[in-house]
């Protein structure tokens, strides 16, 4: 099998993915890009779970990753519908245009 990749490599990659996702959510103003950021955060979580599960030889982490994917799919369905509805009203998916509630 050759040399194993150490656990820390996986953790560093997933932490980087999580940070990139967080920055996307906080910095970008396009609703779809923000959404991609959230999805990236969820996938980094999956990577963390699976890396830990493999190194612990424990199946729990794998099954949790499946749960996370199912929830992410449900969230994507609802989230895209919500963004679409916003677009119908504002003709834009820029969250900075959604300011009618501040008064």
């Amino acid at each position: 099998m050759g040399t194993e990749i150490p656990l820390s490599y996986y953790l560093i990659v997933s932490a980087m993915l999580f940070s990139i996702g967080t920055i996307a959510v906080l910095v970008r103003r396009n609703a779809l890009v923000i959404f991609m950021g959230v999805e990236m955060m969820l996938n980094s979580v999956n990577l963390t779970f699976i890396a830990f599960a493999k190194y612990r030889s424990d199946l729990d982490g794998h099954s949790i990753a499946l749960f996370v994917m199912a929830v992410a799919a449900a969230e994507a369905a609802v989230g895209l519908a919500i963004v679409l509805n916003l677009f119908r009203h504002k003709r834009s998916v820029n969250v900075d245009d959604a300011t009618s509630l501040r008064h």
Partner: peptide, 25 residues
């Protein structure tokens, strides 16, 4: 307004869920 409120609630809610999940991992 309802559409806008849903957008804001959804993004911050999903963001919070992702943070929660990473902590869980």
């Amino acid at each position: 307004k309802s559409a806008e409120a849903a957008t804001k609630y959804f993004f911050l809610g999903a963001f919070a869920s992702a943070i929660f999940l990473y902590g869980m991992a």
